[in-house]
Design a protein around this nucleic acid. Structure first.
Length: 852
RNA sequence: GCCCGGAUGGUGGAACGGUAUACACGGAGGACUUAAAAUCCUCUGCCUCACGGCUUGCGGGUUCGAAUCCCGCUCCGGGCACCA
């Protein structure tokens, strides 16, 4: 037993017995079960559910969970019907890899990890309705993930396509773009290469405009909305046709600057463009071929590393493109700064007004022709506005007008039209992995597709002994030969099951809906309950999900809304991002990490303890691999769940990145002990005599109480828990100092403390004589009039510098305040010798005398 | 390179354009104790013996008054990577 905290003194409460006692009571009474009462207003508060990794929970996880728990508990006390649930995003590659390492089944690994997470979460006293727990890898759950896939498929939003994909040979799987950075898988560092494969795709681009428009009314951080807008990347421009001189071929370009068409001095195709082969002249064939080979060999890593700053490479094809406006023939090049995957994979180049074209033209000695006045285009591209010059019928027009004029000019001649492009691509929705949802899809020998009838869902993931791909590029499920064989539901003939699985996003796209009816086997969710609970009122999680998870979820939800399967157009009304938790990590020159206990500081630098091996000390995101995780279990043991809960939020604002540092937790523990002693006399263990049943004339105490009640009440909405906790501390300090405290005040305090520190509050509530759980108690109201002070302290400034403070009546007039201020000795000292030029009175705040 | 945050005591942080540093940690001193722990009380931004002066990353500006608003930087964290 750590004697410092758990002596047998009665002045300290024993958090272990209290936590065990009340968690048992809550459990037995089913106190956090969701009410079926539909007459009360609802509040759906949701945490981004975790991926149950083998590493278990660390102190960064509970920060958001505690915050939402406070909101949930407080809202219940305020009379809301609260939906508060937790589940597991339990499909995914790490479990599959762990299974391979340990030679067990991913399902067992997953079950074990879930149990660890759940045990750790339970210790914190979070008020989840565990009857609604779900796991995305559970067939009862993914049955409906498959069902939603079918809804999207039937709506024409899922299709198969031959696509270049990120193939990871080490894992034998395809990775999404967002999982690959610098040519390697972000999770493991395994190299990734390009390979062409038939893949399932979602037509998310069809929803680009809806996804943009839907952001308008959401109560989300502006930064997240902006990131989503940028990711969708809507740009309005024109599609313009260029003929290839003397060939009968033509190609289209997309441009946001059709007004600069006349300044076009060459055109560029992506090296992968389908026309390259056909239009390259024999003399240039060797060079073109060599360049295309070079580009193909260049890894994504190199291409990205060199992006933007590197010299732009490319070769001339020997062909000429015909400018549709001027009829002029310009050289047609291929260059890898033009991306095959965006727009039409071809651009016209106007070096004078585009930085990339400018860089390319300078490197390759191509002409730079000014068409918008305002810059020195030979030196640098000019992208600002100005009157058009050298531009025939566009001369004198500004950019906006010129764009319109030239676009309609092109339209009239059938060589162009206005067009909107998105940066957003269709969503690659398939993985060559085992541990994911199978597709409810069958393929006939002729290659056509049949869907598995809804009545036959779920398509259960087959058992396998080996989870790697087949080695010839087919996914692991191809190993389940019997499973792959199926009967055509229409014709009864043999068909084959789709062997890829869905990506991890699938399960997390709609879990908030399943929480509404987790046990229903006949429907994914009950329509009546769905229209009661949706949308999610408050969704809390890390900002790292700013784009992908939140965009994919919104996409599915909007589709479901259009199919009239859900009642709201958007799933998450309010979004709040909790900040990361960082901790110091220590690493030597070879890159080996050390635990904080293995290092020491010597005159400002850090060394491995007892050696002269220097280590680098760095603040990094908490993770097991960096040897810098703090486990909440230890803190729970030593300080109690309540002190830990308070500390997680007292550290600073919820949205801020915070450095984990444990010294401060003693402060929240001491606060709880002080609160305890307001109700329990440390000598007798009984109610202290200073706790009285009648009102007490103690204005500061009363003011502190009501100010605290106000602050905490507001925090339930603003989520500014750090300052709310400070107010509670101030109240307890005030009450500790007071000689008599009305029991009514402590009663109110315990109620607002309860969402923050539920165990100790429950015990105190019982000791105050209540037989029902504080969970169901009413939220105390505050009296604004009691927060006001009897007298005001005005500060008196001379020329903006503080020279005195004066005590005045709260309702003092401006004249009196200024007069009183002038009488002050120290003020007179600074006014002497000058003339008062101006007198400023800010009611209730200050007087400022301007003197010279 | 672009976009988004941030920078306040020894430390985490607080502050409708109006007394900068609430609350907490740490530190110092005191009370209680045989002693220690715990608890309680007092002090704790910097300079100065003091009067007083200085202080919210740096430099300007707006204002009677700026941590807060504007302009120009520096550093740190995060995101995006040639999107025509």
């Amino acid at each position: 037993m750590s004697g410092r905290l758990h002596g047998d003194r009665m002045s300290l409460y024993d958090h272990r017995s209290i936590e065990a006692k009340w968690q048992k009571v809550w459990d037995e009474q089913g106190i956090y079960k969701t009410s079926t009462d539909r007459t009360r207003p609802k509040y759906y508060v949701l945490d981004m559910f975790p991926y149950p990794s083998g590493a278990g929970l660390h102190v960064g996880h509970p920060k958001g969970y505690v915050a939402t728990d406070i909101v949930a508990r407080a809202r219940r006390m305020m009379g809301y019907n609260v939906l508060r649930v937790m589940g597991w995003d339990s499909f995914g590659l790490p479990s599959e890899r762990q299974a391979e390492r340990e030679n067990t089944h991913p399902a067992l690994i997953t079950a074990r990890n879930i149990q660890t997470f759940k045990d750790q979460l339970s210790r914190l006293g979070l008020s989840y309705d565990w009857d609604r727990e779900l796991a995305t890898s559970d067939a009862k759950y993914y049955k409906w993930t498959q069902w939603i896939f079918l809804q999207l498929y039937n709506a024409g939003l899922a299709y198969r396509s031959e696509t270049p994909v990120n193939w990871c040979p080490a894992l034998g799987t395809v990775l999404a773009n967002e999982e690959v950075k610098d040519g390697v898988y972000v999770e493991t560092g395994d190299p990734v290469e390009r390979r062409s494969m038939t893949q399932w795709m979602f037509r998310i681009t069809a929803y680009a405009d809806k996804l943009l428009a839907g952001l308008e009314d959401l109560d989300w951080p502006d930064g997240i909305k902006k990131q989503q807008r940028d990711w969708i990347g809507r740009s309005v421009g024109a599609e313009v046709s260029f003929a290839v001189a003397g060939t009968g071929h033509s190609f289209k370009v997309f441009t946001t600057r059709p007004d600069t068409l006349i300044g076009c001095s060459y055109a560029v195709l992506a090296p992968e463009h389908e026309l390259v082969e056909a239009i390259t002249t024999p003399e240039r064939a060797a060079a073109v071929h060599a360049y295309r080979e070079q580009v193909k060999r260049r890894s994504d890593r190199d291409r990205m590393a060199q992006a933007a700053d590197a010299p732009k490479t490319g070769v001339w094809t020997g062909a000429y493109a015909v400018n549709p406006v001027t009829g002029e023939e310009v050289q047609l090049w291929i260059a890898d700064y033009v991306l095959a995957g965006y727009g039409t994979g071809a651009v016209f180049a106007c070096p004078a007004h585009d930085e990339r074209d400018h860089a390319f033209a300078r490197t390759h000695g191509l002409a730079i022709r000014e068409v918008v006045a305002g810059g020195d285009v030979q030196t640098a591209a000019y992208t600002g506005d100005g009157p058009h010059v050298n531009s025939d019928f566009l001369n004198g027009l500004d950019i906006e007008t010129a764009k319109k004029v030239v676009t309609s000019w092109l339209e009239e001649r059938g060589s162009g039209r206005e067009m909107v492009q998105y940066r957003l691509r269709d969503w690659l929705f398939a993985r060559q992995r085992y541990w994911g949802e199978p597709f409810p899809i069958l393929e006939r020998p002729d290659g056509t597709i049949v869907t598995v009838p809804e009545a036959e869902l779920p398509v259960v993931l087959p058992e396998l002994a080996e989870f790697k791909g087949t080695g010839d590029g087919r996914p692991p499920l191809a190993r389940a030969e019997e499973w792959v064989k199926a009967k055509d539901p229409v014709t009864g003939l043999p068909v084959q099951r789709e062997t890829s699985t869905m990506p991890q996003w699938a399960g997390s796209c709609w879990y908030y809906l399943r929480f509404i009816s987790p046990d229903r086997d006949d429907v994914a969710w009950d329509r009546g309950d769905e229209s009661y609970w949706m949308p999610v009122d408050l969704y809390v999680g890390g900002a790292e999900h700013a784009v992908l998870h939140l965009l994919y979820s919104r996409f599915w939800h909007q589709v479901l809304f259009d199919l009239k399967l859900v009642s709201t157009p958007e799933p998450f009304k309010r979004l709040y991002n909790q900040g990361m938790i960082l901790a110091n990590s220590y690493r030597d020159a070879r890159g080996k990490y050390y635990y904080p206990t293995q290092v020491e500081e010597k005159s400002g630098t850090w060394f491995v303890k007892g050696t002269d091996t220097p280590v680098e000390r760095k603040l990094e995101k908490m993770s097991k691999s960096r040897y810098n995780v703090e486990n909440p279990d230890d803190m729970c043991d030593q300080y109690g769940a309540d002190a830990l809960r308070l500390y997680e939020l007292f550290m600073g604002p919820l949205e801020d990145t915070a450095i984990w540092e444990t010294t401060g937790v003693a402060g929240t523990r001491r606060f709880l002990e002080r609160a305890w002693r307001l109700v329990v006399d440390p000598e007798t263990g009984e109610r202290p005599s200073k706790l009285v049943d009648h009102a007490v004339d103690d204005r500061p105490l009363e003011r502190s109480l009501h100010s605290m009640l106000k602050k905490v009440s507001e925090a339930v909405d603003s989520l500014k828990f750090n300052t709310a906790i400070a107010e509670m501390m101030m109240f307890v300090n005030e009450a500790t100092r007071a000689s008599a405290v009305p029991v009514e005040a402590v009663d109110a305090f315990v109620r607002v403390l309860a969402p923050f520190a539920p165990h100790v509050s429950e015990e105190l509530w019982a000791r105050l004589g209540h037989s029902e759980s504080v969970t169901g108690a009413s939220w105390p109201s505050f009296d604004e009039s009691k927060i006001k002070a009897d007298t005001l302290t005005l500060s008196v400034q001379v020329n903006g510098k503080l020279r005195a403070t004066i005590e005045v009546a709260p309702d003092i007039s401006a004249e009196d305040a200024i007069a009183t201020a002038k009488r002050s000795e120290s003020v007179q000292k600074f006014v002497a010798g000058g003339t008062i030029r101006r007198e400023i009175y800010v009611p209730g705040r200050l007087v400022n005398l301007v003197v010279n």
